[in-house]
């Protein structure tokens, strides 16, 4: 149990996907304009990331390794993730129409989120077990969601700020992301 907690906490804070591993930067910059949209994106990504983490482990362990097909890893994972995203899209639409209305447009977008492929490949690289893989995916997803929500709330506040003209938009977002990353560097050196 302490090990599980350690994996969760370390992926949320110390090795945060966005701030320390620079994964999932596109939704971090792209889907944080509005606070509510960021929450939707965060929830959908958490769902897919955790599932993809477990599914890719099973693929690796029971198909790729026994048949010596490791060289197909990236293609296999991408197909699995795309299929999984489509699958969850159908399931959510059929069973939870309300949730589907909220997450709707974000679900297909997740396929292109590099954090999802990243977590699958990192699981292989760090030779996690099945439970560790799922925890790693969940922790990464929570850390990603946390950053997305924090960043969206800062951006909403900045819409009222008297920012110099050349720095409006992408420039100030980059600077804010930089200072956030600086703050997260305080966690380096923990294990």
């Amino acid at each position: 149990m302490p090990d599980a907690l350690l994996i969760l906490l370390s992926t949320i804070f110390v090795n945060n996907f966005v701030m320390a591993q620079f994964l999932g930067l596109c939704p971090f910059m792209g889907a944080t304009q509005k606070f509510d949209a960021a929450i939707g994106m965060a929830a959908a990504t958490t769902f897919v990331l955790t599932l993809a983490s477990g599914a890719s482990f099973l693929i690796e362990q029971y198909i790729l390794v026994p048949f010596d097909l490791e060289y197909l890893r990236i293609i296999a994972f991408i197909v699995v993730i795309a299929g999984l995203v489509q699958f969850s899209d159908i399931i959510i639409r059929a069973t939870q129409p309300l949730l589907h209305q909220v997450l709707g447009i974000f679900i297909p977008l997740i396929t292109t989120n590099c954090a999802v492929l990243g977590v699958a490949l990192l699981n292989v690289k760090q030779s996690h077990t099945f439970v560790e893989s799922i925890l790693f995916g969940l922790g990464g997803a929570i850390g990603f969601s946390l950053l997305l929500i924090i960043f969206a709330s800062i951006r909403e506040r900045l819409t009222h700020a008297d920012i110099p003209l050349p720095f409006r938009g992408a420039a100030i977002n980059m600077i804010t992301a930089g200072i956030l990353s600086l703050a997260f560097m305080g966690f380096t050196g923990m294990n």
Partner: peptide, 13 residues
């Protein structure tokens, strides 16, 4: 300093 910056980031939330 890191603690302050992290909580500054949380402030709008």
């Amino acid at each position: 300093a890191f603690a302050i910056l992290l909580m500054n980031a949380m402030t709008p939330l």
